[in-house]
């Protein structure tokens, strides 16, 4: 008896869940997605036949069709990720704004920071070797004639005043 009750409850739960899902799908299908909803996704995708043009601003007939496709998919209850995946599967990775992080594409993510860090390292090493704490052998005369900041305006004025006299 108890077992039957449990099965009945489970069936009931299942039915409820399915109804809920169905209702949700129906609701999603019922309303046409707005242009803004379409654009929010189209913005993240690139026109597969033009060069470097996001789908939401691309004015060609082909892109208009793709936007309608997104609208249709949204109306069918697809999620944003599903739609993006559909585009990648059909048209290739070039529809994404940046290369997907797989295989060779890692070059694009790892090479620049590596080069920049290497550059920073080389520069740091070089600068450290250039730093000479107020050197004795340079002599006091030179260290006075090569002050770093000579050309500020005060000295300019003095110079100018001297000229005018």
């Amino acid at each position: 008896m108890k077992k039957h009750l449990r099965i009945a409850l489970q069936v009931l739960a299942l039915v409820l869940i399915l109804t809920g899902v169905w209702a949700g799908v129906a609701a999603a299908q019922g309303s046409t997605p707005t242009d803004d909803e379409v654009n929010a996704i189209a913005k993240q995708l690139y026109c597969p036949v033009c060069e470097n043009t996001p789908l939401d601003v691309c004015p060609t007939e082909a892109c208009r069709q793709w936007r309608e496709l997104i609208r249709q998919q949204l109306a069918d209850g697809w999620s944003e990720d599903q739609i993006k995946q559909y585009f990648v599967d059909n048209y290739g990775a070039r529809v994404l704004g940046e290369p997907p992080r797989t295989g060779l594409n890692w070059v694009v993510y790892l090479l620049p920071p590596a080069l920049i860090l290497a550059g920073a390292f080389v520069l740091f090493r070089a600068m450290r070797s250039w730093i000479k704490p107020t050197s004795v052998e340079a002599g006091p005369a030179e260290s006075k004639t090569i002050p770093l900041v000579q050309d500020d305006y005060v000295s300019k004025f003095e110079e100018e005043l001297r000229k005018r006299k």
Binding site: Y46, N52, P54, G92, A93, R94, V95, L96, G97, E98, P99, G103, L104, N105, V107, V108, L111, P112, L115, I116, G119
Partner: peptide, 30 residues
């Protein structure tokens, strides 16, 4: 550093196309 980023971004699609045949977009987000 900005130059390095720009250069890699411009050249990489060529590398990808030659090495794997796959066209990729290196776009504004990157």
């Amino acid at each position: 550093s900005v130059l390095v980023i720009c250069f890699v971004g411009v050249i990489y699609p060529l590398v990808s196309e030659l090495a794997t045949g796959a066209k990729v977009t290196v776009g504004p987000p990157w």
